[in-house]
């Protein structure tokens, strides 16, 4: 089989699932800056699917693409430690404020630059928005068919793929032509851990911007070892049209944000003591709530 190029879309997200005490402000709202930045969980499931294809077809190439600020290069390194071949960081101030439509446009322009490819794999959704929209929207922009909620790639050849989907109430096996975009569900296998040898080899993988800010010892490193370079692409590099990007390119606007304030109801507070629990159970039986 000839080489298959697989592009994995990944996002660095604030860890909204673990809002600790440090992340709370005095007024009870969340200090987003204090949340840890993590590899979006389902994007790791997506990466694992790509790496499994590479396990079976070793001349395949797994390329990671992320859009975000400079620090998002962290997840490209993380993906490389786990087995991805190389990565691209799509970064530009003009992307700021993009909703899912503008984001998918930007990603699709970057993917066009990587043609030809066999497969684009993304996580189903990112935990900071839970929209599950970017995958299908990228597919539409690239005029690719899509398969969402993927649990397992059962077989792949140069032209065809067989996939198991995990739906709300059942499973579905589908066959598709390539190229194709798929989004991977969290019921798919977890991603393999970092590989110690790859960690040593790619420890100093950096973007141009990171390189310019690093100590002099490392400046020349990428000349000798070009594989340490993480490509950085701007709006111009991917030939994107500004009008479809950022706030201007985003049809959804946030009209209002309300911080969640818990409104207290008239609660009767009880202890877990025998007396209290028995009183409550009797009360519920008496008013026919339980019977």
């Amino acid at each position: 089989m000839k080489s298959l190029k697989i592009i994995v879309l990944a996002k660095q997200v604030p860890d909204t699932r673990n809002v600790g005490k440090d992340a709370m402000k005095a007024d009870g709202t969340v200090n987003r800056g204090a949340l840890a930045a993590i590899f979006n969980p389902e994007d790791l499931n997506a990466l694992e699917q790509a790496l499994r294809i590479k396990d079976k077809h070793p001349n395949s190439e797994v390329v990671i693409l992320t859009m975000g600020p400079g620090r998002a290069a962290e997840i490209i390194r993380e993906a490389i430690y786990r087995g991805a071949d190389r990565g691209y960081l799509l970064t530009d101030r003009k992307f700021a404020g993009s909703d899912t439509l503008a984001t998918s446009y930007a990603l699709s322009m970057a993917i066009r630059k990587m043609e030809p490819y066999a497969l684009v794999i993304a996580g189903r959704q990112a935990i900071d928005g839970d929209t599950a929209q970017v995958g299908p929207q990228v597919a539409e922009k690239l005029n690719l068919p899509q398969v969402t909620y993927v649990e397992e790639i059962q077989n792949i050849t140069e032209t065809e793929i067989v996939i198991k989907r995990r739906l709300e109430r059942g499973v579905e096996i589908v066959k598709s032509t390539l190229p194709l975009l798929i989004t991977v569900h969290n019921s798919a296998p977890a991603c393999r851990p970092r590989n110690a040898k790859r960690l040593m080899k790619f420890k100093h993988a950096q973007t141009v911007t990171e390189m310019q800010n690093s100590s002099e010892d490392y400046i020349g490193l990428q000349n000798d070892r070009p594989y340490l370079r993480i490509e950085e692409w701007s709006v111009d590099d991917v030939k994107a049209d500004d009008t479809w990007l950022g706030l201007a390119g985003s049809p959804t606007k946030v009209k209002k944000i309300d911080n969640v304030v818990f409104k207290a109801k008239e609660s009767k507070v009880l202890s877990g003591d025998n007396g209290d629990v028995e009183w409550l159970v009797k009360e519920l039986i008496a008013n026919s709530t339980i019977g």
Binding site: V19, T29, V30
Partner: peptide, 17 residues
């Protein structure tokens, strides 16, 4: 809809489209 891990409630509009 709730957003950002449920820590805020957002009202979203699409004025132009």
């Amino acid at each position: 809809r709730p957003a950002f891990g449920g820590n805020i409630i957002a009202t979203i509009i699409n004025p132009e489209t």
